[in-house]
């Protein structure tokens, strides 16, 4: 499985993502600068966490206009896998690759701690190695992770089985609508999530619950 990690100015989880990919897929990912207009031949594109463009205007708004986004949209249209983590999720919503928006956390506080999640949907390359309803713990680290969409969109996401991950009952750290932590696009090849699976892939990092996400991708995309 070949992968690329997009690097925006002020991305800060790009190396975490690259380390996880190298460790779990055996191949070093391409690091692609946001100003590039072409992607290398890859199966997976990762939009990493961070504070691209200093969160100017809105989180992810500037990055969504980067030159590389056109190539990423074409990759997704062809059925290529795209994983947006944290700021990457914000970029995907701003780029309209995923519906809804990520707003300021309801309690206005930056939240940085491990959070219990439930895998709500296993029909995707990202989540196929997990059991339906399986509880996992991923860290979150964000100030703007409050998922918002209108009721019609939320109903459609739930009806189409596109809510991949929810915060476990009582664990919602940011006020997200219907406890949504991560969603899929209609074709199920694009996943955006606020928690960080790439930070829990080694016991030394405090957990291994993220490993199965990368294993699922590796099995599907190799």
């Amino acid at each position: 499985m070949k992968s690329a990690v997009i690097v925006f100015p002020a991305s800060n989880c790009d190396r975490d993502a690259a380390t996880a990919l190298k460790q779990l897929t055996g191949q070093t990912p391409h690091m692609v600068w946001h100003r590039d207009s072409e992607l290398p031949q890859v199966d997976l594109v990762v939009l990493p966490g961070g504070f691209s463009y200093g969160d100017y205007l809105r989180c992810g708004a500037m990055a969504s206009q980067s030159a590389i986004m056109r190539a990423i949209k074409a990759h997704a249209d062809r059925g290529g896998a795209v994983l947006g983590i944290c700021n990457g999720f914000q970029v995907l919503t701003e780029a309209h690759l995923l519906p809804g928006a990520l707003m300021r956390n309801a309690n206005l506080q930056f939240v940085c701690r491990p959070v219990a999640l439930e895998v709500n949907e296993t029909q995707s390359a990202f989540t196929r190695k997990y059991e339906h309803g399986q509880r996992v713990v991923f860290p979150v680290a964000h100030g703007d992770g409050n998922y918002f969409a209108d009721d019609e969109t939320l109903n459609r996401l739930e009806g189409e089985g596109r809510v991949a991950l929810r915060y476990a009952p009582g664990q919602n750290p940011n006020g997200s609508a219907r406890d949504i932590a991560g969603i899929l696009n209609q074709k199920r090849n694009v996943l955006g999530l606020m928690p960080h699976p790439e930070r829990v892939v080694d016991p030394l990092l405090g957990g291994t619950d993220g490993i199965k996400l990368f294993q699922g991708l590796l099995e599907t995309l190799s």
Binding site: L57, R58, A61, Q65, T93, E94, P99, G100, A101, M103, F148, A149, D150
Partner: peptide, 8 residues
């Protein structure tokens, strides 16, 4: 296109 996110 940019200044507002018309979702919210």
């Amino acid at each position: 296109k940019l200044l507002a996110n018309t979702v919210i």
